[in-house]
Design a binder for these strands. Structure first.
Length: 617
RNA sequence: GGUCUCUUAGCUCAACUGGAUAGAGCAGCUGCCUUCUAAGCAGCAGGUUCCAGGUUCGAGUCCUGGAGGGAUCACCA
């Protein structure tokens, strides 16, 4: 369906015009074509400035020549107008009819055929010691949406995570549960598993602080204080700083926790069983949240499996003298010629650091899936880490090194400022999901349409609407941007929101339900489109490019802006024009096929954001 | 302090990657439901695009300097 690619086609015709009129060879991509501003006539605008100097003619002259050429040689160009340096083209009525037919014929308009390429996308990747929060939601939605977008673009997509299931944090929950839990379980306490384990993580912290507090008045503490305090430092400031050292050197429960970690690393059966039990609860909890958000994964990677990966690769790098070894045995890579620093890859005791694991994991994934592209959806606080990782993989000559991308998204702030777990301002994912659904139900309480439905259908609709509000609010913001999330706005259902878009779809469905399909569409080929219809078709025809653009930018907000724009255009059209009661039979049937396709594109594009359409609302 | 990054209407965000008079939503004010779903539409008001220079036909967008926020500079992950 090349004909549907209006801009590409116009670029090609413009190249042809420049060649035939001026013997000027231009590449199609260099021809700048925009949507015509609404205050001027026309649909597409060719920017003429670039040729003014080279052709030594005025924009008026160049525009006239190209305009005349296009009009004479390509009958789909109906007319043109020149305003300052812009050549505005109007396309013919039959051309727009063909566009609509083409969209209708397309199997799944906007989606590209399989291109045989694979892409792996890593997202979510939580720690297993506390429940998911608002920050994870942004991560998950971005990752899931990118996966959908790449699938639409023709890729095979592997959705994955690296679950941070090991380390001292997990052991804290384990210790606290063992010590204070009295055998309590998520079932016995009727608590979601991740929240249950998170409770013990918090409890650990509380117990530790209590222990630390009382230790501070001991003789031992006084001695430490006298020997280590800096001039001018208050006792309080000293102890605040000393927390980690206390944990490692003096704390009873700190020692107990470290010993759990050592036993875990030594594969102690009892410890591993405890670890598995708690992590199992956490996973049960996470899965509930993933289900609620409608996301799933192809394969999960666990740090407990991968944390030893990468070490032998480091030794290989050492042999190729990509890396060097210090006297203490630690191994480093020097990336200063790439504008980066020196980075440790193996500790002096021979154990791996985070970077090493990531090298090993990337290789593992390549082995597992033979992918040429890998995307990491990780917050922008790790920008430097990924620069280094990608540079190292490049130097190792990994075959996928050019296909690596860090989808670096900005942190989510609240109107009051940053989320801080210490101050209890972290927005819990499950609470938030529940809240938006409740709010959607509340907003619908007076809806005559919905009140006719049974409870099950109603709550399904509330779920779709509430999640749409939440997801759209997050995804409409450019992925790399830091964003402010106002919970009050997330339950807003008016304006630039998910429900606004759903409503456009629902209004179409409502009309289509009233159509008697048996009546049969009369031929509407002679129907003369009005400006609003042409502009709708122009937006619709742009959908494939929007997907491609969103994919190459790794940015779902491009799709979000698009689908909002289409919904907005439709709402106005719906308000201004009658469809069933149109002024003529041909207008009626043209509009019916038009809105059918609008509905399909609205649904298809909002699905790329992980949002579902209700039939009624 | 070094490096990276951000700053657009009262608030939250756009601006097709250098193109026409910088656009939406929210909040505020005003209209429009016996007519296909008003979770809608239309209107009013709101701007020195942080500041100062530079590049060119043309700058919110590019370059330099400055101000203010954020991130990061571990043998943590």
């Amino acid at each position: 369906m090349e004909e549907l690619h209006i801009i590409k086609s116009l670029q090609a015709k413009t190249v042809e015009a420049l060649r035939n009129c001026y013997e000027l060879e231009e590449s199609p991509d260099s021809i700048l074509i925009n949507f015509t501003k609404k205050e001027f006539d026309g649909e597409y605008t060719i920017v003429l400035f670039p040729y003014v100097k080279r052709l030594k003619q005025s924009p008026q002259e160049i525009g006239t020549k190209i305009g005349d050429y296009l009009q004479e040689n390509h009958d789909f160009v109906k007319s043109y107008g020149i305003v300052s340096g812009f050549l505005n083209l109007s396309l013919s009525n039959s051309y727009w009819h063909n566009i609509l037919l083409g969209i209708n014929d397309a199997d799944s308009f906007g989606h590209k055929p399989k291109n045989g390429e694979k892409i792996l996308i890593e997202y979510s990747s939580p720690n297993t010691n506390k429940p998911l929060h608002l920050g994870h939601i942004r991560n998950i939605l971005l990752g899931h949406s990118c996966a959908e977008i790449y699938e639409a673009e023709g890729y095979d997509v592997i959705r994955t995570q690296i679950v941070n299931d090991r380390g001292i944090a997990v052991c804290k929950s384990m210790y606290a549960w063992q010590e204070y839990g009295n055998g309590e379980t998520p079932e016995s306490s009727n608590t979601k598993g991740d929240h249950f384990v998170g409770k013990y993580y918090v409890l650990f912290d509380k117990k530790f602080r209590e222990e630390y507090q009382s230790w501070q008045s001991s003789d031992e503490a006084k001695e430490v204080l006298i020997n280590n305090i800096k001039d001018g430092q208050s006792d309080e400031a000293f102890f605040n700083n000393y927390k980690n050292q206390y944990f490692n050197s003096f704390s009873k429960i700190g020692k107990a926790t470290s010993s759990l970690l050592k036993k875990w690393e030594a594969d102690d059966a009892e410890t591993v069983a405890l670890w598995k039990k708690l992590n199992g609860w956490v996973y049960d909890g996470f899965n509930v949240t993933y289900d609620a958000l409608g996301v799933a994964f192809t394969k999960l990677y666990y740090e407990s499996d991968t944390y030893k990966l990468g070490r032998d690769v480091v030794n290989q790098g050492l042999e190729k003298s990509l890396y060097y070894k210090l006297e203490d045995g630690s191994i480093w890579v020097d990336l200063e010629d790439a504008g980066l620093d020196k980075k440790i890859l193996l500790r002096s005791d021979g154990t791996a650091v985070y970077m090493t694991q990531d090298i090993g994991t990337a290789m593992q994934r390549y082995q597992d899936f033979n992918v040429n592209k890998m995307v990491y959806v990780v917050g922008d606080e790790q920008n430097y880490h990924f620069k280094v990782l990608f540079e190292i993989l490049k130097r190792l000559g990994e075959p996928y090194a050019d296909g690596l991308h860090h989808l670096s998204y900005g942190m989510v702030d609240l109107p009051e400022g940053k989320m801080k777990s210490r101050e209890g301002t972290v927005v819990d994912a499950d609470d938030l999901i529940k809240e938006v659904i409740t709010e959607a139900a509340y907003a619908a309480k007076d809806s005559a349409v919905l009140n006719e439905l049974n409870d099950e259908s109603k709550s399904e609709i509330y779920r779709k609407i509430g999640l749409a509000a939440l997801k759209f609010q997050i995804l409409k913001v450019g992925a790399t941007r830091r964003m402010t999330f106002d919970p009050k706005e997330s339950v807003d259902m008016q304006g630039t929101t998910g429900p606004y878009i759903q409503n456009a779809f629902v209004r179409i469905q409502s009309i289509l339900r009233k159509i008697d399909e048996n009546e049969g569409a009369s031929d509407y080929g002679d129907y003369i489109l009005n400006t609003d219809e042409i502009h709708l078709l122009r937006t619709m025809a742009n959908y494939p490019d929007v997907i491609s653009n969103a994919a190459s930018e790794y940015d779902p907000s491009i799709v979000a802006q698009y689908v909002y724009g289409l919904a907005k255009q439709y709402h106005k059209f719906h308000h201004d024009f009658r469809i069933i009661g149109a002024e003529s039979e041909s207008a009626k049937w043209f509009r019916i096929s038009l809105i059918k396709e609008i509905a399909k594109i609205l649904e298809s594009s909002i699905n790329l954001l992980g949002i579902e359409m209700p039939e009624r609302m």
